[in-house]
Every structure is written in structure tokens, then in C-alpha cells.
Design a binder for these strands. Structure first.
Length: 222
DNA sequence: TACCAGGAGAAAA
DNA sequence: TTTTCTCATGGT
């Protein structure tokens, strides 16, 4: 059972929206590049992912065929700034094989959202968060992304326990906010930006965009 | 030097 | 079913 309060969930968005500029938050030239970035950014700061993407762009055109044409060790070397390079090289290859065998962008983007989500999740190395990043930012489907920042901030505000199953939290947020791709993209970006810029340095959110919400009943003041 | 970052999968308990 | 471990570089 979710403890999400609809009014407070919307208030969080409104409070953050006036504080951060998240335009071009997921910078990419193509949807495929978004998907590659989603894999590379697993447990990795975006600044390091940018270096890896720059290395790839300097060497090849960012397509599934070009990545599959690379030698795995060569691919690992190019993406090394993003960390876990051997692991992520395998994941990129697995994903590119899936992408090509599924018929590429045209075929995948024609699938219903839930079917597409299950297909993405069937690829080794793509978990719920990575799949939902792809669905929201590449395929522009109304899927709310739950990441560690989202859990942390919502739990701190008393909008959850912080340990709910991924699907429980995602469906609860989607139910409250309604299917709105633009809102989901913006909300996720705002939560990440807020967590990066304020909450990490100030665990109690004092003086931050969510100051008033942190003081409301149910919020965690640790 | 230690910790964290836009996770996921496998192994162990 | 839940928890722990592994993968690894770069910034603070």
C-alpha cells in the first residue's frame, strides 16, 4: 500500500520547478543515443558518461550496427571513462543485438508501451530504471522513472518509506500524476538536479527548494 | 583516503 | 525472499 499523498507529490514538483532549469537535461542527438547513455550511466555520474559518448562519437557513428562492428575490447576501451567498462561493453553489445534483431527503431517504437517495456527488461543488463529511462526519454512514453534520488527525496518528505518495490512506487506516481510524458521528464530531471545540488550537501534540506515541505508532518528530519 | 555517482545481476544467507 | 558482493573510473 503506497503512502503517497497526491497533493504533496504535486507540491514537490511545483516547488522544484521554480528553482531549476532542466531544459536539455538528457542531452542526446538521437533516441538511440539516449538508450546508449541510459546503459552507460548505470551507477555512474553523467560527466563520465559524456566522455565515453564523446569517445564513441569520435570513432563511430552511434548506431547499433557500428557498435556491433567494434571489437568488444575496443568498445570497452572507448567507454572506459564511464566505469565498469568490461561489464558495460557486454551490456551495450547485448542491447544492440536486441535492437537490431527486434527491427530497430521503427519496429520497437510501434509497440504498445507495456510490451516494449517487457522486451527491454528481457535484455540482460537492462533493469527497471534503465528501461524506464529509455521509455521516457527515448520513446517518449508516459512511464515515471524511480531512481535512488527519487526514493531518497520522497522518503525524506514522508511520501514513502524508501524501500517500496520499484513497481509499487512507479505505479503510484503514475496514478497520481496521470499519463503526461512532459511532466514525467521534467519531474525526474528536477528530482535528480535537486538531489545533486542541494540534498546531498544538506541532508535536512534546510534552505532548499523543498524547505517548507520538509517541515510538514510526516517528513523525515534526520 | 574515503565516499559517492542518473544500477543490475549473480551469489549467498 | 532478502541481503551482499561485484563491476571501475573520476570528482569531491
Amino acid at each position: 500500500m503506497s503512502t503517497l499523498d497526491p497533493a504533496r507529490l504535486r507540491a514537490v514538483y511545483e516547488a522544484l520547478a521554480v528553482c531549476y532549469d532542466t531544459r536539455h537535461w538528457w542531452p542526446a542527438e538521437t533516441p538511440f543515443e539516449v538508450m546508449i547513455g541510459a546503459i552507460l550511466t548505470q551507477n555512474t555520474a553523467w560527466s563520465n558518461v559524456e566522455r565515453a559518448l564523446a569517445n564513441l562519437r569520435a570513432r563511430i557513428e552511434l548506431t547499433a550496427e557500428s557498435i556491433l562492428a567494434l571489437d568488444p575490447s575496443q568498445l570497452a576501451e572507448l567507454i572506459s571513462p564511464a566505469g565498469y567498462f568490461n561489464l558495460k561493453a557486454c551490456r551495450l553489445i547485448d542491447f544492440c543485438q536486441f535492437y537490431r534483431e527486434s527491427g530497430g527503431w521503427a519496429a520497437l517504437s510501434a509497440l504498445p508501451t507495456e510490451v516494449l517495456r517487457q522486451q527491454l527488461l528481457s535484455v540482460k543488463g537492462i533493469g527497471p530504471e534503465t528501461a524506464d529511462d529509455m521509455l521516457l526519454y527515448a520513446f517518449e512514453r508516459p512511464v515515471f522513472v524511480i531512481d535512488a534520488y527519487t526514493r531518497r527525496i520522497l522518503a525524506r518528505l514522508g511520501l514513502g518509506r524508501g524501500n517500496e518495490p520499484y513497481e509499487t512506487l512507479r505505479l503510484a506516481c503514475e496514478s497520481i500524476l496521470g499519463p503526461d510524458v512532459g511532466l514525467y521528464q521534467e519531474y525526474h530531471a528536477l528530482l535528480v538536479e535537486h538531489a545533486k545540488q542541494v540534498c546531498r550537501a544538506r541532508p535536512r534540506c534546510r534552505g532548499c527548494a523543498l524547505n517548507k515541505l520538509c517541515a510538514m508532518p510526516g517528513a523525515v528530519s534526520t
